[in-house]
Computed example of a mutant assay.
Amino acid sequence: MNILTEQRVVRPRSVRATTTFSRNRFEIAMGSLALLYLLLFAGIPLIYNVVLSFQQVDLMSPAFFVRPFVGLANYLDVMSRPESRIVVVNTVLFVALSLVFQISIGLLLALLFMQRFPAASFLRGLFLAGWIMPGLVVGAIWKLVFAGDYGVLNHLLISAGLIHAKIFWLSDPHFALYAVIIANIWLGVPFNMLLLSVGLIGIPAEIYEAAKIDGAGPVRRFFAMTLPMMRSTLGAVVSLGAIMTMQQFDLIAALTQGGPANSSQVAQYWSWQLSFQTFEVAQGSAVATVMLVLVLIVAVVYVRSIRHETTA
């Protein structure tokens, strides 16, 4: 009996040890495959792009890894061009205005859908449906909205008496950038609403009930309680939104292609034009590398925000 009892006790431990070892090997294998995937399809292209930005590249040598080293010459060349200042200003405006309105409208919608009213779930789903559409499709839709001769926006504004002549939103240098920003705001609002809704759900309802008993109104509760308690969530949303906005390419390609006269040109699209339209691959890589550094900085801020929110 003792021997049998010992065997019964030992066997489950052996099975558990074998199962744990197998699970660990499986996790290591999956992690190694994910790391290999990132290295092949993200790491190597990024490293290759950075190397290109420090080399002299012509149409006969883009496939070679070893080329003449020119240091910061490509970066200085890009910064000395007259359009570089326009690109920097446009990129800052594009990112800043997009984030301000995406987060503001997203937060208002998140607060709205926190309330209970008929068809709330259905309407929330409609907002999210716009976000899952490809950027080129969204650009095609907004191209119809902004069209000068037959556009929906001009028709509504003229009917309301707000303007008396048609505005060519996408071909007028004064409006082209802001038209792209409006389309990008529309595209990004549902994503921000979704993230901010998660943050609002995490705030205990008992705190609001106590504030109501103390006589705090909705505006005071929002500024004194909601915003401070969502500081980490807002930091993460701003960081992630900045990364996504700095990578936005499809809308610009569909709406303005950086024109007219570079009035809507931003860094990410300029990098593509330099590399694949004028075949200045090294200069395009230099612009892309600067954007990469900025994205990495914002990514570090995002990771810190997520870590702070997790430990809070």
Rank of each mutant, 00 (worst) to 15 (best):
W270K: 10
V237G: 00
R220G: 07
T233A: 02
E280L: 11
Y302R: 02
I3S: 14
A179E: 03
T18Y: 05
G161W: 06
A254H: 12
M230R: 09
G106T: 03
E6L: 11
R16V: 00
Q277R: 14
W186R: 07
L72V: 14
S197I: 00
M79V: 15
M229T: 14
I167F: 07
Q102S: 13
A120I: 03
Q248W: 05
T256H: 06
I44W: 06
I44Y: 10
R307C: 00
L136G: 09
T245A: 07
I47P: 03
L107G: 02
G139R: 03
A183P: 07
P45W: 07
V237M: 01
T91D: 07
Q248G: 05
N90C: 02
W142S: 04
F21T: 14
W186K: 09
L170I: 06
Y208F: 15
Q55M: 09
Q265W: 00
I243V: 15
D214F: 02
E83L: 09
A176C: 05
M225E: 14
V95F: 14
E209H: 11
Y302P: 00
F191P: 10
V57H: 10
Q102Y: 02
K166V: 00
T91L: 09
S275L: 05
A205Q: 09
A96L: 15
P134Q: 14
V293Y: 13
V78Q: 13
S275Q: 14
A160R: 12
W272F: 14
Q248L: 01
G161L: 04
G151H: 04
A288R: 03
D250V: 09
S61D: 05
V198S: 11
N24H: 10
A119P: 01
P204M: 05
Q7V: 11
A242H: 10
T278V: 13
H174P: 00
R85E: 04
V287R: 01
R221F: 02
L294T: 13
S305N: 13
A160G: 06
A147I: 02
A129I: 05
I3H: 14
R307E: 08
